[in-house]
Nucleic acid binder design. Structure first.
Lengths: 142, 142
DNA sequence: TATTGAATAATAACTATTATAAAACGAGCG
DNA sequence: CGCTCGTTTTATAATAGTTATTATTCAATA
């Protein structure tokens, strides 16, 4: 706990982010458990230490942390359903910022090696792979 | 247009899905344009042919098509934000059904080849790759 | 033609998230 | 030590996307 405490102060300083008690606690809650969290999970955990905290604060700070690179977003995606009628094997290149999607050929993947790394029982019979990054116009803006 | 007409009937038959006029038109709207659509886009397109169609019907049928494998879902994701505090390079194995996420090592990716396939200007300085499939318990249920 | 079950339309309800406005905080300065 | 200004937090309202509900329509069959 002491460790993440210090770790957060350093990260925040590096990104020019003022440290507040709420931010400290939110960050520690994310790090404390090693799984992938939803805002509600984090809200619940943080409330045990700051009962008065508001859900909006959790959202605000998570987003801030993601923007600054203190945290990563899992599957950064459009907030709405997208469908693809192309059933031919292909994969997607997704912009983490504007969520645009382009198709990409899949031959950069070593399926044999990937299968070897899979946990038992994981079914990859129709593998779909998404590569996240920043599209040209978003990386230009940055 | 005739082609997707027939294509849909065959696909539907293969999956034991009764063909209705609405389904036919929804499917054709997805295929007609080659991008990745939101339900609202599709709703707008379909309304030009069936003005009385309901948004719910579009949702229902898209979901049905995804379930049956007539369409793929782009970025199958939990309906809520997920956050990951682990900044070490690693990737994710995501279950398309239950949306659970596990970490996975990334050495099945040929980054050199991937970079060669990237469209100009795409920034992959912090590559994040997600592999979608079915986790053990979901593939058992199936 | 009457019956039955599935699909659709219309709309209400729900959930996750964002926006807004007011209150509290906190660093810097007199 | 108290004031002030900008930031953060809180509380809550608003919104967007999606799902659920229910009545209606349709299509197939007896």
């Amino acid at each position: 706990m002491r460790l993440t405490h210090k770790q957060f102060r350093e990260l925040a300083a590096k990104h020019g982010l003022p440290v507040t008690h709420q931010r400290q606690v939110v960050y520690e809650a994310v790090i404390a458990s090693h799984r992938h969290h939803s805002p509600e999970d984090i809200y619940a955990a943080v409330r045990r230490r700051i009962p008065s905290i508001s859900l909006a604060t959790v959202y605000n700070n998570l987003r801030l942390f993601i923007e600054c690179g203190l945290l990563r977003e899992v599957t950064p995606h459009a907030s709405t359903l997208r469908v693809d009628g192309n059933l031919e094997p292909h994969h997607h290149l997704v912009c983490s910022r504007c969520k645009s999607v382009q198709d990409i050929e899949g031959d950069f993947i070593d399926l044999k090696r990937l299968s070897r790394q899979l946990p038992g029982g994981f079914d990859l019979s129709q593998p779909l792979i998404e590569v996240f990054g920043l599209c040209r116009s978003c990386s230009a803006k940055k």
